[in-house]
Design a protein around this nucleic acid. Sequence first.
DNA 1: GTCTATAATCAGATAGAC
DNA 2: GTCTATCTGATTATAGAC
Lengths: 182, 182
Amino acid sequence: MDSAAKVLRAKGMMATRLSEIAEGAGMLAPSIYYHFKSKDVLVEKVMLEGIYRNTRYILAAVEGKNAGIDPVERLRTGIRAHVEFLLSDDDYSSAVARVFPELPEEMRGRVLAAYAAFENCWRDLIVAAHPKGGSIDAPVARKYLIAMLDSTPMWYRRGKLKPAQIAEQAADLFLGGYLAAG
Amino acid sequence: MDSAAKVLRAKGMMATRLSEIAEGAGMLAPSIYYHFKSKDVLVEKVMLEGIYRNTRYILAAVEGKNAGIDPVERLRTGIRAHVEFLLSDDDYSSAVARVFPELPEEMRGRVLAAYAAFENCWRDLIVAAHPKGGSIDAPVARKYLIAMLDSTPMWYRRGKLKPAQIAEQAADLFLGGYLAAG
DNA sequence: GTCTATAATCAGATAGAC
DNA sequence: GTCTATCTGATTATAGAC
């Protein structure tokens, strides 16, 4: 699964070959079938694991000691955590960001319950921080926030800007707009 | 090409079958090869056409009579235009949003010159509107803006919110954050 | 548990008739 | 320009030895 997550993160679902996953795990493609019934099942398990990790990581950050109880600061903490996790060496988190949008209909359905927990986590943070008289729909804000953050691994390249700085700018950008619009 | 754009918009590149494109054009798969040398060439032409359309549409809106010369209003106009175009019945614009991120390395290279024009269009609008002492990097803002907007067709469903309202919220969200952060 | 075959499937691409 | 028929190649998946 670790190898699968690594390849999926880099290539997406359709372009990922079982042979490449196997290579990363030090075996040949047919051996995978001893562990998983099919490619779809393997991808699905990676998705579930990644969604759980993402959700847990955000919740842990938000509930952590430094988070406090101010809803805006909690949301900011969640955004920072998600971006930094996506840019970390954890392959599952960014595999989800990359693969989930291109999942076949039928598989997305099976993963949806887990994904709902992830989205609900954001929904709660966003609704709690909603400004009085704000004009932006919470669901629209959530979709745009997730799309923004999940895009980060696709274009970020190590350079003068560190992940923590990107995370901070993502938080500034979203929160500035979300809180200001009213 | 129209049929290809329609299928690509809905399924992405890897999941798009030549047979389905052919069906939409009222022919069978092999007939496509009379018009295009390969599937890749066809997809590439759709991408180029889509990128040009997107760029032209934004520029036309920004240079239009209602745009004025205030840089912030120009950027707002560009955002509104792009979102509404993505949600229109034009298949090329959203095909780009969907397919470009998953293009194979080698093809992305060939499309990159055209895509640069699209990104430069945003770069100019964003730089012109950059607030004094703003803390958000223009390139980061551009990547996040494009990711936000391009995600719209993936989750928007016709309902109580009309495309124009989504476009307005996208503009409020981005501009609020971009202008406020300083 | 992993391997070496080998099937089974499928989609992109070609040949040649019409 | 489009068709039918076919080829090619890649990839998922199975069978059975070790």
